[in-house]
Design a protein around this nucleic acid. Sequence first.
DNA 1: ATTATTTACGAAACCGTTTTCGTGGTTACT
DNA 2: AGTAACCACGAAAACGGTTTCGTAAATAAT
Lengths: 344, 344
Amino acid sequence: MNPNVFYGKMGVTIKQIAADLKLAISTVSKALSDSHEISPETKARVFEYAERMEYKPNPYASGLKDNRSRNIAVVLPEIADSFFASAIDGIEAAAQTKGYHVMIYLTHEDAQREHAIISELRHRRVDGVLISVVSNSSDIPHLQGLYEHGVPVVFFDRVHTAIDTANVVTNDFDSAYSAASLLIRKGCKRITFLALRGDLNIIKDRTAGYLKAINDHGIDTQLNPVLTCGHQEDETMTLIRQRLTQEDSPDGVICSSEKLTTQTYSVCHRLKISIPEDIKIIGFSHLPIASLLRPSLTTVTQPAFEMGRTAATLLLNALDKKRTILKKESIVLPSMLIERDSTG
Amino acid sequence: MNPNVFYGKMGVTIKQIAADLKLAISTVSKALSDSHEISPETKARVFEYAERMEYKPNPYASGLKDNRSRNIAVVLPEIADSFFASAIDGIEAAAQTKGYHVMIYLTHEDAQREHAIISELRHRRVDGVLISVVSNSSDIPHLQGLYEHGVPVVFFDRVHTAIDTANVVTNDFDSAYSAASLLIRKGCKRITFLALRGDLNIIKDRTAGYLKAINDHGIDTQLNPVLTCGHQEDETMTLIRQRLTQEDSPDGVICSSEKLTTQTYSVCHRLKISIPEDIKIIGFSHLPIASLLRPSLTTVTQPAFEMGRTAATLLLNALDKKRTILKKESIVLPSMLIERDSTG
DNA sequence: ATTATTTACGAAACCGTTTTCGTGGTTACT
DNA sequence: AGTAACCACGAAAACGGTTTCGTAAATAAT
């Protein structure tokens, strides 16, 4: 632009400063990092000038040396889900205090997209990855490859046990057990557990916890089945509607995901099935406004923020120590079963 | 682990390939970019080898040359807000198709934090910034500086008109006008408009639209006031409660933000004020489950996803053309007033 | 007085790319 | 035959930093 207007345009480089101050580039670099081999006078000169020029080192240039960008990736199925939104919140909080930057990648429950993203992340754009996978079988080789190529991976919520790294989960089995027990205690005789298609660990665990509760209470498993739903909204709604209108329709439903919960509510509203009189409902959900629903929703609420923050902290601590392989460990943060009106 | 298993560890570099193939680095680089000055045979050799080694260029090394990272920043007040969550969704969609990467920064409605983040972004970590500001006066010099230093900025939703760049908003004035008109039509005599403290344009516009409607309908402005709320949850709840329990308490409320909406609902629930009989409520909110609330909520729903995608597209198009200054323009995407039970 | 050490700085290599510029060897034109 | 034009490749500079090493001068140790 205008050449004599100002140096600062487009970012002053260390080279510029060196030239202007008639110093060697290395001298300036050392001065800025407060090296002991530079005299106080020179340091002062450099500091003052750098300040005036608003010099900021280019992070990627520095990163080239030690091969780190201080960027981490968060890969997750969707963001319009209060669990994931809060998890990101926790991740960002941890990252910000540690001087890291958070990149977001959305898979939209699509294994192919996840595949593409993981593949992209091999290019060393990020120093590490936090991920909540789409499916438990989808992308082992890719994730494994990423991990083995020196990009540490930490799973949260939707983990992938085939890979030996750290992960952060909640007590899915126990919460589902408690949820089912509550419904049974409330007198439900025909509970349906809404599972998600796929082989997600969290769903498997929740389903198992549910079935254990049914068994432990000596209740007929036939009458208390598991219904597997897909990710497509209309298809799932139809499925739920059919279930709720069939003969011997359920008097209790446990929804294993937030979406399934809201979908079930929608169906009930539309069909004028009254909760909790006709049917009692518990949802796995982090919804902050569960208490404002009609009726207020009994939830299994995950510690989303904490899970995100914990996972991020695990990863960032490893990165700070330049550890690229994390000890295999599962950190389990407990969910809370919060009784509200939908279980009357 | 197994040392002789594979070269690929930690990422092959172009230099490695050159050495292995006994070629010059430049030759390999050109071959990979399919340059005409490399013979088909050599290209084939290089391609095949690069493929086998799973070579991927280091994005930040390349970025150093043309001074671009293909990363963009999204700076916003919070993520646990369905508007912003959806906006990110739209942004990510646009970015992914254009080969850009999205970094998230949360200000938590804190001007200082926003300041720190903007300042951080001057280091050329990102090629451009999408932002929904905390306040309209907070950080002009910083944003201005960022912009002038060659980092393009696009505002969305919470814009900053003092800076001459592109921005994407919704028709706040008109929607507020419509919302107020609806309440008046429904017979409300004492409406309260809940504004947010600060000098956000969107709030100002919404407030103005509300006041205009009150005026146009020849209604007493004294009885239809604006109540300014802060960002602190408990404080705001108290304020709302006071208002709803005072003498001549309102029979209609318009909440200018999603949080205010849910807070108002909470207060009504707690005080057993029945909606819409005692009071009618309209909320500016993108909540996908507005219809599941008790009672279902009449909303002014912003086109969040579209706004995010549009803002991102504007920015990315400029970046692709290496344009760093964007034409000042406002793209207005209309909100929708969706009547539900809360306005009875 | 001689050697050893410290001080304060500069030169240069390096990180992984891209790009400009040479250059030796063919092939094509007149 | 002489020059022009290409062809296929390599050397080196550049991007913006950090870091290692070298070195002249000043100071300290013997």
